[in-house]
């Protein structure tokens, strides 16, 4: 199998892509997003279990030439976001050259060792560790010990709570929010040119990091993710205050799966959940 750097060099040399969104290591060995623009730059590309960032976010943040093409290094969970962006007409399939990476699970911090306790929970449920949509594949997946789903315990606990208890739980979590919007900025599905939170005529969302403002932001963000979240967990990773945001998005995903048998980011030609209407759609669960 050709390796990542070889593939990247070929693409940049033939000018098949104008740049490649990938990962590199800084001089301390910390992995970070990197834009390779030349054949020389391609030498700096790498991929390992610290390549946690979902680079699909850059597909809408950076300008892709209308008829051009860019390369992107993507693991299976990131590819779901790329598919979702194609499904939502934000990019065209032919605009991206996907270098799919065989992945062995990722860990959060640069100092974290690649071991069971540190591997992300999302990796446990990554049924398809081999890339599902790609133009080339690189890397080798190594078997790894699956992490415990500590979140599931909390999910079940939340299910058994009364709505007042759940309110208290979230009030305590949202109290921490400082409105840095890292959850929005890091989210590949948050691509609106003007976020609802930035509109003030009328003021839909209270901008202050107060209980009212924090509730309205976090709840509205979660609702906007219903049937759209691809489960990359980047919002929770980016949150400097440690708010367990994926509890909300995961719950949304479960509802979409249970009630509509839908999962976002699985096939580029599948109509989106909120963008399609079926006369037989279940609505009994909406109260």
């Amino acid at each position: 199998m050709p390796d990542l750097i070889e593939i990247a060099k070929g693409l940049l040399e033939s000018k098949e892509v104008s740049f490649i969104i990938g990962y590199t290591k800084d001089r301390f060995g910390r992995v970070k997003p990197y834009i390779a623009k030349s054949v020389e730059d391609a030498n700096n590309l790498m991929f390992d279990h610290h390549s946690i960032h979902n680079l699909a976010v850059y597909l809408t943040r950076l300008k892709i030439p209308e008829n051009g093409r860019v390369g992107i290094v993507a693991k299976s969970c990131d590819i779901k976001a790329i598919i979702a962006l194609i499904q939502e007409n934000q990019i065209k399939r032919e605009q991206v050259y996907i270098i799919g990476m065989n992945c062995s699970g990722v860990v959060t911090h640069s100092t974290d060792e690649w071991k069971k306790e540190n591997i992300q929970i999302k990796c446990k449920y990554c049924a398809d560790k081999a890339p599902m949509l790609y133009d080339a594949v690189a890397g080798t997946a190594e078997p790894f010990e699956q992490p415990d789903d500590t979140q599931e315990v909390l999910m079940q606990k939340l299910e058994t709570m009364s709505s007042a208890e759940r309110w208290d739980f979230w009030a305590k979590e949202f109290e921490k929010c400082i409105k840095c919007y890292a959850c929005r900025q890091v989210c590949p599905m948050c691509y609106c040119e003007q976020c609802l939170a930035e509109k003030n005529q009328p003021q839909w969302i209270t901008t202050s990091p107060t209980p009212a403002g924090n509730f309205s932001w976090n709840i509205i963000k979660a609702f906007h993710m219903a049937g759209r979240c691809v489960g990359c967990h980047e919002c929770e990773r980016a949150c400097p205050m440690g708010i367990p945001l994926t509890l909300l998005t995961r719950k949304m995903g479960m509802v979409a799966g249970k009630e509509f048998n839908y999962r976002h980011g699985m096939a580029i030609d599948q109509p989106t959940l909120v963008g399609s209407y079926n006369f037989n759609d279940n609505e009994d669960f909406i109260k």
Binding site: K32, I35, V57, Y58, K179, Y181, A182, Q185, A238, P240
Partner: peptide
């Protein structure tokens, strides 16, 4: 430009 293209534009840095 090199940093701006990688920066996602959140305020984590400013708020911490």
């Amino acid at each position: 430009a090199e940093t701006g293209e990688v920066c996602i534009g959140c305020a984590q840095c400013a708020f911490v």
